[in-house]
């Protein structure tokens, strides 16, 4: 049995792995991927030590630092459930494999939120995308729709007006993005903003051909032609595996103390999946480090 299992390999989980190795903990790092949300980040200008670094490059640096240490790794393994066993915890993967450890650091981060409308799942990858910076350029010269009104939606719209034929921005609320971004966007000649419009449906045949929206104020229904639909409506915590073990907050985040303890002894959490006030790479990395130091102390007490 491992002493420590780190679930998730974003900045929190990877920083935790480095600290675990330095404490000579017998540790297992298990995660669906390496890098988490940093994989959807183009450039980073606020991680100390780098004035600018690409997301992919920062992950590669994290990964190579972790690989210097004898940490067992199960990458490509998604955990669907965490449960208690005698002397610790057992995590069960989507494919039914079980992993046991005395203590667990849960650092699974967040994922893009789904809209929950008809056609969304059917056309995922077939015009529906949750990563505008990844897939946006595939739609150069075409009509696209972006759903959302915050910084990531308006940022995606700003990127797309430069390459798409036309961009429709559809937001359920008045735009909440920074005013500087909105001002830049409305300067573009090939954008239409539908604020306070609900996205009702995504339709098409083999691929997306458009969306249906409905004005919340006007009640009017409109069909917008689009071959790409980018959904940028925020993030949801990947907290499902622990939802039966501890009480989540109203956003589905894992509440933690300032020492990264959850309400269950031996279960620690760090990074964006927790209720830590700021979701930043540097914050998540620090939280991961802090959590492992606490977990190490707890393991020492257990050994006494």
């Amino acid at each position: 049995m491992h002493e420590l299992m780190i679930i998730g390999a974003g900045p929190a989980g990877l920083a935790a792995a480095v600290y675990a190795a330095r404490k000579r903990l017998k540790a297992l790092l298990v995660s669906g991927d390496i890098g988490g949300q940093v994989n959807q980040t183009l450039g980073i200008e606020n991680y100390l030590g780098y004035q600018f670094i690409e997301g992919a490059e920062l992950i590669a640096k994290f990964e190579s630092q972790v690989s210097q240490f004898p940490i067992d790794q199960k990458i490509g393994t998604r955990i669907s459930r965490l449960g208690e066993i005698t002397d610790g915890f057992e995590a069960i993967s989507e494919t039914g494999d079980g992993f046991q450890a005395r203590v667990v650091l849960f650092a699974t981060g967040k994922r893009p939120k789904k809209l929950g409308v008809s056609g969304e799942a059917e056309f995922a990858g077939k015009g529906v995308s949750y990563c505008a910076i990844c897939d946006g350029p595939v739609f150069a010269g075409q009509r696209v729709a972006i759903v959302g009104g915050g910084n990531s939606a308006v940022g995606a719209a700003l990127d797309m007006v430069r390459i798409a034929e036309h961009v429709d921005l559809v937001s359920l609320t008045p735009l909440t993005a920074d005013i500087i971004l909105i001002e830049k966007l409305v300067e573009a000649s090939n954008v239409s903003v539908y604020a306070q419009y609900q996205t009702e449906k995504i339709y098409g045949n083999a691929f997306v051909s458009g969306i249906v929206i409905k004005g919340l104020v006007t009640g009017e229904e409109k069909r917008l032609d689009a071959s790409g639909v980018f959904i940028e409506i925020g993030l949801a915590p990947n907290s499902e595996p622990v939802k039966d073990l501890i009480e989540l907050n109203k956003w589905g985040e894992v509440p933690v103390s300032c020492a990264n303890e959850t309400t269950m002894p031996g279960l620690y959490a760090a990074g964006d999946v927790t209720d830590v006030p700021e979701k930043q790479i540097i914050v998540a990395a620090g939280e991961g480090a802090k959590a492992v130091l606490q977990a190490h102390r707890y393991l020492q007490q257990l050994a006494k």
Binding site: E54, A56, I59, C131, I133, C134, D135, P137, V138
Partner: peptide, 13 residues
Amino acid sequence: STPTCPYCKRAKD
């Protein structure tokens, strides 16, 4: 790939 896609860069690396 596309030039902006971090997953593409990671795959190529």
